[in-house]
Design a protein around this nucleic acid. Structure first.
Length: 184
DNA sequence: CCCTGATTCGC
DNA sequence: GCGAATCAGG
Protein backbone atom coordinates (compact mmCIF):
# COMPACT_ATOMS: atom_id res chain seq x y z
CA UNK A 1 0.00 0.00 0.00
CA UNK A 2 1.25 3.41 -0.85
CA UNK A 3 0.62 6.80 0.59
CA UNK A 4 -2.57 7.95 -1.02
CA UNK A 5 -3.87 11.38 -0.28
CA UNK A 6 -6.44 10.00 2.08
CA UNK A 7 -3.94 7.95 3.96
CA UNK A 8 -1.58 10.86 4.25
CA UNK A 9 -4.42 13.05 5.47
CA UNK A 10 -5.38 10.48 8.05
CA UNK A 11 -1.79 10.14 9.08
CA UNK A 12 -1.49 13.85 9.58
CA UNK A 13 -4.65 13.98 11.57
CA UNK A 14 -3.87 11.10 13.85
CA UNK A 15 -0.32 12.22 14.38
CA UNK A 16 -1.51 15.68 15.28
CA UNK A 17 -4.01 14.18 17.63
CA UNK A 18 -1.16 12.62 19.47
CA UNK A 19 -1.50 8.97 18.63
CA UNK A 20 1.72 7.06 18.64
CA UNK A 21 3.29 5.87 15.43
CA UNK A 22 2.38 2.30 16.10
CA UNK A 23 -1.20 3.16 16.86
CA UNK A 24 -1.45 5.08 13.65
CA UNK A 25 0.13 2.24 11.76
CA UNK A 26 -2.48 -0.09 13.15
CA UNK A 27 -5.30 2.16 12.13
CA UNK A 28 -3.99 2.76 8.67
CA UNK A 29 -3.20 -0.83 8.09
CA UNK A 30 -0.65 -2.11 5.64
CA UNK A 31 2.17 -0.17 7.19
CA UNK A 32 4.47 -0.51 10.11
CA UNK A 33 5.19 2.10 12.69
CA UNK A 34 8.54 2.63 11.06
CA UNK A 35 6.81 3.51 7.85
CA UNK A 36 4.64 5.96 9.70
CA UNK A 37 7.56 7.56 11.43
CA UNK A 38 9.48 7.77 8.23
CA UNK A 39 6.55 9.39 6.52
CA UNK A 40 6.04 11.78 9.36
CA UNK A 41 9.58 12.95 9.03
CA UNK A 42 9.38 13.29 5.33
CA UNK A 43 6.26 15.35 5.74
CA UNK A 44 8.14 17.36 8.29
CA UNK A 45 5.50 16.86 10.88
CA UNK A 46 7.01 17.00 14.28
CA UNK A 47 5.00 18.94 16.70
CA UNK A 48 2.31 16.93 18.34
CA UNK A 49 -0.58 17.63 20.59
CA UNK A 50 0.40 18.45 24.09
CA UNK A 51 -2.16 16.23 25.76
CA UNK A 52 -1.59 12.89 24.10
CA UNK A 53 -4.31 10.33 23.88
CA UNK A 54 -3.37 8.28 26.86
CA UNK A 55 -5.66 5.44 26.00
CA UNK A 56 -2.97 2.85 26.05
CA UNK A 57 -1.66 3.61 29.48
CA UNK A 58 -0.60 0.52 31.31
CA UNK A 59 -3.08 -0.21 33.99
CA UNK A 60 -1.96 -0.27 37.56
CA UNK A 61 0.07 2.78 38.17
CA UNK A 62 1.91 1.83 41.31
CA UNK A 63 -0.33 2.54 44.18
CA UNK A 64 1.50 4.49 46.81
CA UNK A 65 3.42 2.16 48.98
CA UNK A 66 2.91 3.19 52.49
CA UNK A 67 5.43 4.24 54.99
CA UNK A 68 6.89 1.70 57.22
CA UNK A 69 6.41 0.76 60.68
CA UNK A 70 9.36 -1.25 61.68
CA UNK A 71 7.36 -2.57 64.45
CA UNK A 72 6.58 -6.12 64.94
CA UNK A 73 3.02 -7.15 64.65
CA UNK A 74 1.53 -10.50 64.76
CA UNK A 75 -0.37 -11.61 61.76
CA UNK A 76 -3.70 -12.88 62.78
CA UNK A 77 -5.24 -13.81 59.54
CA UNK A 78 -6.78 -17.19 59.30
CA UNK A 79 -4.47 -19.58 57.62
CA UNK A 80 -7.02 -20.07 54.91
CA UNK A 81 -6.76 -16.45 53.96
CA UNK A 82 -3.05 -16.38 54.08
CA UNK A 83 -2.81 -19.40 51.94
CA UNK A 84 -5.09 -18.17 49.21
CA UNK A 85 -3.86 -14.66 49.26
CA UNK A 86 -0.25 -15.50 49.39
CA UNK A 87 -0.31 -18.40 47.08
CA UNK A 88 -1.21 -16.28 44.12
CA UNK A 89 0.62 -13.14 45.02
CA UNK A 90 4.16 -14.29 44.42
CA UNK A 91 3.37 -14.86 40.80
CA UNK A 92 1.93 -11.44 40.39
CA UNK A 93 4.69 -9.66 42.15
CA UNK A 94 7.42 -9.56 39.56
CA UNK A 95 5.16 -7.36 37.49
CA UNK A 96 4.67 -4.65 39.99
CA UNK A 97 8.16 -5.02 41.26
CA UNK A 98 9.56 -4.06 37.91
CA UNK A 99 12.05 -1.31 38.37
CA UNK A 100 9.90 1.04 36.40
CA UNK A 101 7.00 0.74 38.72
CA UNK A 102 8.71 1.70 41.87
CA UNK A 103 7.89 5.29 42.25
CA UNK A 104 6.85 5.98 45.75
CA UNK A 105 4.64 8.80 46.69
CA UNK A 106 4.96 10.43 49.99
CA UNK A 107 1.57 11.96 49.87
CA UNK A 108 -0.06 9.47 52.07
CA UNK A 109 -2.09 9.50 55.14
CA UNK A 110 -1.07 7.68 58.20
CA UNK A 111 -1.52 4.03 58.43
CA UNK A 112 -4.36 2.65 60.39
CA UNK A 113 -3.14 -0.15 62.50
CA UNK A 114 -5.84 -2.59 62.82
CA UNK A 115 -5.56 -4.13 66.18
CA UNK A 116 -4.66 -7.74 66.00
CA UNK A 117 -6.91 -10.22 67.60
CA UNK A 118 -4.38 -12.83 68.38
CA UNK A 119 -4.92 -16.17 69.92
CA UNK A 120 -6.33 -17.53 66.73
CA UNK A 121 -3.64 -20.09 67.31
CA UNK A 122 -2.36 -19.98 63.80
CA UNK A 123 1.26 -20.68 63.23
CA UNK A 124 1.71 -17.87 60.82
CA UNK A 125 5.01 -16.20 61.48
CA UNK A 126 5.17 -12.71 62.78
CA UNK A 127 5.56 -10.30 59.93
CA UNK A 128 7.73 -7.27 60.09
CA UNK A 129 5.46 -5.29 57.82
CA UNK A 130 8.03 -4.06 55.43
CA UNK A 131 7.34 -2.00 52.37
CA UNK A 132 9.18 -2.38 49.15
CA UNK A 133 12.07 -0.16 50.01
CA UNK A 134 12.82 -2.05 53.15
CA UNK A 135 13.50 -5.31 51.48
CA UNK A 136 17.02 -6.51 51.17
CA UNK A 137 18.80 -9.70 50.33
CA UNK A 138 17.91 -11.29 53.59
CA UNK A 139 14.32 -10.30 54.09
CA UNK A 140 11.39 -12.47 53.20
CA UNK A 141 9.71 -11.04 50.18
CA UNK A 142 6.47 -12.84 50.67
CA UNK A 143 3.76 -10.31 49.90
CA UNK A 144 0.92 -9.90 52.32
CA UNK A 145 -2.35 -8.33 51.42
CA UNK A 146 -3.59 -6.57 48.34
CA UNK A 147 -0.85 -4.68 46.51
CA UNK A 148 -3.41 -2.07 45.64
CA UNK A 149 -4.36 -1.44 49.20
CA UNK A 150 -2.45 0.77 51.57
CA UNK A 151 -1.84 -1.94 54.09
CA UNK A 152 0.03 -4.08 51.65
CA UNK A 153 3.43 -5.15 52.87
CA UNK A 154 5.99 -7.87 52.83
CA UNK A 155 6.63 -10.52 55.42
CA UNK A 156 10.09 -9.22 56.05
CA UNK A 157 11.37 -11.93 58.30
CA UNK A 158 14.91 -13.05 57.77
CA UNK A 159 15.34 -15.55 55.05
CA UNK A 160 17.86 -18.26 54.99
CA UNK A 161 20.77 -17.97 52.67
CA UNK A 162 19.81 -16.66 49.30
CA UNK A 163 16.20 -17.62 49.62
CA UNK A 164 13.76 -14.87 48.82
CA UNK A 165 11.48 -16.11 51.55
CA UNK A 166 11.71 -16.93 55.19
CA UNK A 167 11.62 -20.53 56.20
CA UNK A 168 7.89 -20.55 56.59
CA UNK A 169 7.03 -18.90 53.31
CA UNK A 170 9.63 -20.81 51.43
CA UNK A 171 7.63 -23.90 52.14
CA UNK A 172 4.53 -22.37 50.65
CA UNK A 173 6.38 -20.98 47.71
CA UNK A 174 8.06 -24.17 46.75
CA UNK A 175 5.32 -26.61 47.36
CA UNK A 176 5.28 -29.55 45.05
CA UNK A 177 2.76 -29.08 42.30
CA UNK A 178 0.77 -31.99 43.54
CA UNK A 179 0.20 -30.35 46.89
CA UNK A 180 -0.73 -26.92 45.75
CA UNK A 181 -4.36 -27.45 45.17
CA UNK A 182 -4.79 -28.40 48.75
CA UNK A 183 -3.19 -25.29 50.13
CA UNK A 184 -5.02 -22.91 47.91
C1' DC B 1 10.04 -7.25 28.66
C1' DC B 2 7.02 -3.81 26.76
C1' DC B 3 6.98 0.55 24.44
C1' DT B 4 8.39 5.37 22.24
C1' DG B 5 10.45 8.39 18.34
C1' DA B 6 14.97 9.28 15.52
C1' DT B 7 18.20 8.03 12.14
C1' DT B 8 20.41 5.62 8.62
C1' DC B 9 20.73 3.79 4.17
C1' DG B 10 19.81 0.27 0.53
C1' DC B 11 16.19 -0.08 -2.35
C1' DG C 1 10.17 8.49 -1.57
C1' DC C 2 10.02 4.47 1.08
C1' DG C 3 10.60 1.66 5.23
C1' DA C 4 13.46 -2.14 7.71
C1' DA C 5 16.99 -2.08 10.73
C1' DT C 6 18.99 0.03 14.15
C1' DC C 7 19.66 3.21 17.83
C1' DA C 8 18.51 5.71 22.12
C1' DG C 9 15.59 6.26 25.60
C1' DG C 10 11.42 5.32 29.13
Amino acid sequence: MGWTDERVALLKQLWTEGLSASQIADRLGGVTRNAVIGKVHRLKLESRAKAPATLQTHAAEPQPVRQVEVETVEVMMASRFVASQAASAPRAMPRSMGATALKIDHEEELEVLEEPRRQSGEVVPIARKLTLVQLNERTCKWPVGDPLKPDFHFCGNNSKDASPYCQYHAKMAFQPVSDRRRAR
